[in-house]
Every structure is written in structure tokens, then in C-alpha cells.
């Protein structure tokens, strides 16, 4: 049974000049304890997809399709749920760590105060219980000296520490699903590894499901068991992470893994693919303008979803074997 089930989720931005599709018809299901990574280039809709899951889309954005939660505390559709339901779900069932960590922490409140506010909204505790809960929470995200962190303002902490405070905040309501949006971009190698280790441990100990948005294939390799690759709003390929990185079918995923391998082996990378272009075609395959193996049919027909062995799915007319 799936904890989170998404069917045909589409996010549109409506303006005077017409509407633009930012995420188009994505379906996925997340079983309890799953670790899903979402990869794709900047602007491909990864963040919008995640924000749609907690219904935190900016003004003027609309979503269609179905988002269904099946948890012990709540089951039902949330794609058009009212504010009351959403308030219950956010933090309690789905926790969210935003991309821009410094902006998601209040600069004028000490970390301890911010965290206890979050704990207090999700649980009814006495003062002493609250203090213990706060300390336990900070220890659980890897702080050895929680009292020091409670007493610190966000700006007094390093990037890695702020990240862990934000993580603690997302975990304060004991959610069953945690969404982490690009956690490692501003972190050094040690802080990156510690974060991934921490998430892995959390998943093992509490059965948490995690959706992680990342550019770093090392994160995917070390953490995720499932990978979804997005391009121009579409899920172009998905499947078990190790298998997908090893043998990608879609030409975009191939470019991505080839680039990563070139870096790993310290070799130059020269793809035989055209440059990035802003123009995503209205019909046909969305990757056609950059695809090295395009043919006539790619310009005219959008490729259907192909399901292959081992739970792999991809959208391409001429996949590589």
C-alpha cells in the first residue's frame, strides 16, 4: 500500500498571456519507508512538484490531478483539501525542508524558541516535557551539545548546522514523509556526508519516507532506492536508483550520468548534444531540441511511457539499450 499516491499531477501558472505548464502529468507512489530522489536541471519543476505535495504553490498557480495520503492519522485526497486539513497535514504527516535554509529560519528568534514553537503546535506538552522533547529532537539530528544550539540565533551557526536545525524543525511534528529540497548545494563535503548519513539513520530507525531533490548523483547513489528524473516538467525516466544510474535509457539521463562519470574519473566531458535552449517545443518530445538521437517522429509525437523490466519507466521513442 502506498503512503502517498500521486496521479496525473499537473501544475499550471496562469497569467494574462496564457497558461504555462510547470509540472505535467506526474504519477508516482511512495510506500512507507521509501527513499525517493528527484533529479533534473534547474527549472525542470522539481521544487514545484514538491511544493504541490504540501499545497504550498505561489499565488496564481493551479494544480490538477490527484494527491492521496494513506497514513494512520489521515487518509484521503489532499489535492483540493481545505485549509484546516492542510494545516493538520503540514508538519505532522509531511515535513518540508526548504531549499533556502537561512530564509526559512527566523533571524530574530533563538533556535530553541523557534523549535519549541513548532513542537508546541503539533503536540500538547507540559513545560518540562517540551524542554526534554526539544533536547531529544536536537540530539536526534546529530547535535552533541543541544543547549548551545537552543541558545543560538541562526546567524551564529554554520550552514551545515542551520541545515540540521531546519531538519529538526521539519521533524518536530513526527511526520511520516519528509521532503528535502536541494540540501547539499551550499555544504562542504563533510557536512553533505553527515546529512545523508543522518537521513539514512532516521529512515532506518523510524521508518520515515524521504523525498530528496538533488543535483548530486553521489547523494542519489548513497541514499535513494528510487530515482525520478525530470525534464521540462515531465518525469522522463524513473526506476530503482542503482539500476537507473548504471544503465539509463533516456538520452537526458545518459548525459547526466556520463557527466558524473567523467568527473569521477577526472576526464574531460564533451557531449555530442546541442546546447540548452529556452524553447521547449509545444508538441513532440520535450527533449527534442537537445537530443543527440532525434528523428522525425520525435518532432511530431510525444513519446508514450514505456515500462521495462525491473520497474523502470521512461518516455522516449529511441531509448538506448
Amino acid at each position: 500500500m502506498a503512503l502517498l499516491e500521486i496521479k496525473n499531477l499537473t501544475v499550471l501558472r496562469e497569467s494574462e498571456t496564457g497558461q504555462k505548464t510547470l509540472v505535467s502529468a506526474i504519477s508516482l507512489h511512495l510506500p512507507p519507508g521509501a527513499k525517493l530522489a528527484i533529479c533534473g536541471e534547474s527549472g525542470s519543476g522539481k521544487t514545484m512538484l514538491c511544493r504541490a505535495l504540501v499545497r504550498l504553490l505561489p499565488r496564481g498557480f493551479r494544480l490538477t490531478g490527484e494527491i492521496r495520503l494513506e497514513s494512520g492519522r489521515f487518509s484521503g485526497k489532499i489535492d483540493h483539501a481545505d485549509q484546516q486539513v492542510l494545516e493538520f497535514i503540514r508538519g505532522r504527516i509531511i515535513g518540508f525542508v526548504f531549499q533556502d535554509i537561512p530564509a526559512s529560519l527566523n533571524p530574530v528568534l533563538k533556535c530553541g524558541r523557534q523549535l519549541s514553537d513548532v513542537i508546541a503546535t503539533t503536540q500538547t506538552l507540559s513545560r518540562t516535557e517540551l524542554a526534554t522533547a526539544l533536547e531529544d529532537l536536537l540530539v536526534s539530528v546529530g547535535f552533541e551539545n543541544p543547549r548551545r544550539i537552543m541558545d543560538a540565533f541562526p546567524f551564529e551557526l554554520s550552514g551545515g548546522m542551520q541545515q540540521r536545525v531546519a531538519l529538526a524543525m521539519a521533524l518536530a511534528g513526527k511526520p511520516e514523509i519528509l521532503i528535502v529540497d536541494e540540501p547539499s548545494t551550499a555544504l562542504d563535503a563533510i557536512a553533505r556526508r553527515d546529512l545523508i548519513d543522518l537521513l539514512n539513520r532516521r529512515c532506518q530507525e523510524t521508518g520515515l519516507s524521504v523525498i530528496i531533490v538533488t543535483h548530486d548523483l553521489l547523494n542519489v547513489h548513497k541514499f535513494a532506492d528510487h530515482l525520478l528524473v525530470m525534464y521540462a516538467g515531465e518525469a522522463i525516466e524513473s526506476g530503482p536508483a542503482a539500476n537507473l544510474i548504471e544503465a539509463p535509457h533516456h538520452p537526458y539521463t545518459q548525459l547526466l550520468t556520463a557527466a558524473w562519470r567523467a568527473l569521477l574519473n577526472n576526464q574531460p566531458f564533451s557531449p555530442n548534444a546541442p546546447e540548452f535552449t529556452q524553447n521547449v517545443p509545444g508538441r513532440g518530445c520535450r527533449f527534442v531540441t537537445r537530443c543527440p538521437n532525434r528523428r522525425k517522429v520525435c518532432l511530431e509525437e510525444s513519446p508514450p511511457m514505456t515500462v521495462s523490466a525491473g520497474g523502470r519507466c521512461f518516455h522516449c521513442h529511441f531509448p538506448s539499450k
Binding site: G40, E41, S42, T185, A186, H215, D216, L217, L255, L256, A259, W260, A262, L263, P268, F269, S270, P271, F276
Partner: peptide
């Protein structure tokens, strides 16, 4: 490179 995706990172490196 920190704000860029992997492909762009590699292209910028080149």
C-alpha cells in the same frame, strides 16, 4: 558551480 545542476557544472568546468 554550487547553484548549478550537474551538466552545467561539467560544461562550465570545460
Amino acid at each position: 558551480f554550487s547553484a548549478q545542476d550537474l551538466l552545467i557544472q561539467v560544461q562550465l568546468t570545460d
